[in-house]
Amino acid sequence: KLLSSIEQACDICRLKKLKCSKEKPKCAKCLKNNWECRYSPKTKRSPLTRAHLTEVESRLERLE
């Protein structure tokens, strides 16, 4: 599967780190437990900047 097509777990399953069936409108866990089942939009991760990478590398060197 391509990364862009990976389905996201519902908010509660993601928060509780449960295996989500990803069914809509309610996944199996939410249906069974009568929880409100919501699927928040995916958040875009910002790409690493060179400055951040350099900072992490220098912190790693100090720890070694």
Rank of each mutant, 00 (worst) to 15 (best):
K1W: 13
K1I: 15
K1D: 05
K1E: 07
K1N: 01
L3W: 05
L3Q: 15
S5P: 15
S5G: 15
I6C: 14
I6H: 14
E7T: 15
E7Y: 15
Q8T: 14
Q8Y: 12
C10Y: 05
C10N: 00
C10S: 08
D11Y: 06
D11N: 11
I12W: 12
I12V: 13
C13Q: 06
R14A: 00
R14E: 06
L15V: 13
K16S: 10
K16E: 05
K17E: 01
L18R: 12
L18F: 01
L18H: 00
L18G: 00
K19V: 07
K19A: 06
K19R: 12
C20T: 01
C20V: 01
S21Q: 03
S21F: 07
S21N: 08
K22G: 00
K22I: 00
E23F: 03
E23A: 07
K24S: 08
P25G: 03
P25N: 03
P25F: 01
P25V: 01
K26H: 09
K26N: 03
K26W: 04
C27M: 04
C27Y: 08
C27I: 08
C27P: 02
A28D: 02
A28S: 15
A28H: 12
K29I: 03
K29C: 11
C30M: 06
L31N: 12
L31D: 09
L31S: 12
K32F: 04
K32T: 03
N33Q: 11
N33S: 10
N34H: 13
W35Q: 10
W35T: 11
W35S: 11
E36K: 07
E36A: 09
E36S: 11
C37S: 09
C37M: 03
C37A: 03
C37D: 01
R38A: 13
Y39P: 06
Y39S: 06
Y39D: 03
S40N: 05
S40Y: 06
P41K: 11
K42L: 06
K42A: 07
T43F: 10
T43A: 12
K44I: 11
K44E: 07
R45V: 11
R45Q: 06
S46F: 01
S46P: 09
P47K: 03
P47G: 06
L48H: 02
L48E: 01
L48M: 06
T49N: 06
T49E: 00
T49H: 00
R50S: 08
H52K: 11
L53T: 10
L53I: 00
L53N: 04
T54M: 11
V56D: 03
E57Q: 08
E57K: 00
S58I: 11
S58E: 10
S58L: 14
S58V: 10
R59Y: 07
R59P: 04
R59Q: 05
R59C: 03
R59T: 08
L60W: 00
L60M: 09
E61G: 08
E61M: 13
R62M: 03
R62I: 09
R62L: 12
R62S: 05
L63Q: 05
